[in-house]
């Protein structure tokens, strides 16, 4: 699969990365060559193979329901880019329910 500039722009938008037109061209070429590498996977028939998401054959451990964390707002917000009244500020959020 070879990607063109429009593909790259769509992907960059999904990933929320600003890219210039020149960059889009360069990424199109880089990503296409990476995909060519990746598509070597197609040489194998995996019809009857189950996917492996994880190297461990373990089940999820369950935590006891207890409150263990204390308020550390001041510490957590000490490196925040923009705060006010304990809130993280961002450019106005358009209603989204």
């Amino acid at each position: 699969m070879s990607l063109n500039r429009a593909d790259v722009e769509k992907i960059a938008h999904l990933a929320r990365l600003a890219i210039t037109e020149d960059e889009a061209e360069a990424y199109a070429s880089d990503l296409s060559s990476i995909l060519a590498l990746v598509e070597q996977m197609n040489a194998v028939d995996t019809q009857d193979v189950s996917p492996m998401a994880h190297p461990l054959h373990m089940a999820q451990r369950l935590r006891v329901d207890e409150v263990t964390e204390v308020d550390q707002r001041e510490r957590f917000q000490s490196t925040a880019p923009h705060i006010e009244a304990g809130l993280y500020l961002v450019p106005r959020v358009i209603e989204q329910g």
């Binding site: 009244a85 304990g86 809130l87 993280y88 500020l89 961002v90 450019p91 106005r92 959020v93």
Partner: peptide, 11 residues
Amino acid sequence: HEDFHGMSGID
């Protein structure tokens, strides 16, 4: 969405 100088606050 109260007005924080045109910004939104996240809790």
